[in-house]
Design a protein around this nucleic acid. Structure first.
Lengths: 198, 198
DNA sequence: TTGCAACTGGGTCATCCGTCCCAGTTCAGT
DNA sequence: ACTGAACTGGGACGGATGACCCAGTTGCAA
């Protein structure tokens, strides 16, 4: 009906694909389901993308760009490092609770990428981005609380990402809020010991 | 050809299914692929199982039973609690490195279960089992090192499971051994602080 | 107003999937 | 030896899926 430039159409399809994956899982993210979600026809799909694979690749790439941008932002609390970190993790946990399907979709996308050698680098890029974001937050956190990392921040960040992933996965399974808060607390504890007061 | 009782046949099919999932992912675990792996005909499949769904359910249940039985065994190291725990986590990590596909399959199975309300309880049971096993190991570890948990062991165990999951997922993506050992170290550090020397 | 590229609808194709079926074969118990 | 149940091979099914195609239509620039 309405004319839409090809690039916007690609973006719309990627958005639709992400919604379908979130709601129903990757297995259900067929070209037809995506197209229905976007309110287009199959022809439009193959006008914008050569193949479903191309869409999936671009979906993962896009998702990396927008990843957790909203989370762990600059407005961290003040106080002791351990508290700042814990507040950050708890903040992420709140985000997870608010939109579990989105994080579940991320997990599925990662595992999907892991399954083919050509896509594995996409998953690695995704995690490099996670670590990068975590690094920024940790640097700010240390600054705020007047602490200095005695372990390379990149390594601290990598540990934080692992802990966050674990929190996510286990909570998605058992939805045990209290247990997840305990994880957040323990993680903050461990991380904060990688820094010294200045 | 050879006659095999139905129950053995079910077991054989489940074994084949797990191998297919490990090697190629759940998406590729079609009835035909499973049957080929087991060296049977499609008819045998539907003689042993009513449906693919039934097989998948039983696969998950079976996997729960056999889960990580070999890991975190009784022969934990002696020494300070933190070291005993770290040795245990590192030991799990070695297992992960030895058979990454198996752990990846576990992850996929979990996420698969998460996608349908009827199967969600299976994933929860899987995790309850993980926590149970972790609990046993932690109790032994405390005993060995002469420490006593001042946090309910179940909760410590749940944190350990989360940390382990995070370690698994991130390592599967970036295969960064050093980073994973750092995670193991940090996890052991955090966990050991949930106990006091006796 | 015309021309052209962007776009769409609707249909088709081969392939793969889970499931089912049935005619046969093999074995255990009688 | 006979029978009934356990099992198997091979084929068929309807449905879904990714890909493709083409005759149109729409809007924009010249």
């Amino acid at each position: 009906m309405t004319r839409i430039p090809a690039q916007e159409r690609r973006a719309a399809l990627i958005g639709a694909a992400l919604r379908v994956v979130s709601r129903n899982g990757i297995a259900q993210a067929t070209t037809r389901a995506i197209v229905a979600e976007a309110g287009m026809s199959l022809a439009s799909f193959h006008y914008a993308f050569d193949s479903r694979d191309e869409l999936m690749d671009e979906l993962i790439s896009t998702v990396i760009e927008n990843t957790r941008r909203a989370i762990m932002p600059e407005d961290l609390a003040d106080g002791a490092l351990v508290d700042v970190i814990e507040a950050g993790v708890v903040r992420y946990f709140e985000h997870l609770k608010a939109d579990p399907e989105h994080e579940q979709a991320m997990l599925e996308l990662t595992q999907y990428a892991l399954r083919s050698p050509e896509r594995h680098p996409l998953a690695q890029a995704q995690y490099r981005r996670y670590v990068e974001l975590a690094e920024q937050s940790l640097e700010i956190a240390a600054e705020r609380s007047g602490a200095v990392w005695h372990v390379p921040v990149a390594q601290v960040a990598r540990v934080l990402v692992a802990f966050t992933d674990g929190l996510t996965l286990t909570w998605l399974v058992d939805r045990d809020d209290a247990a997840s808060l305990a994880v957040a607390h323990a993680a903050a504890d461990a991380l904060s010991r990688m820094a010294d007061p200045r």
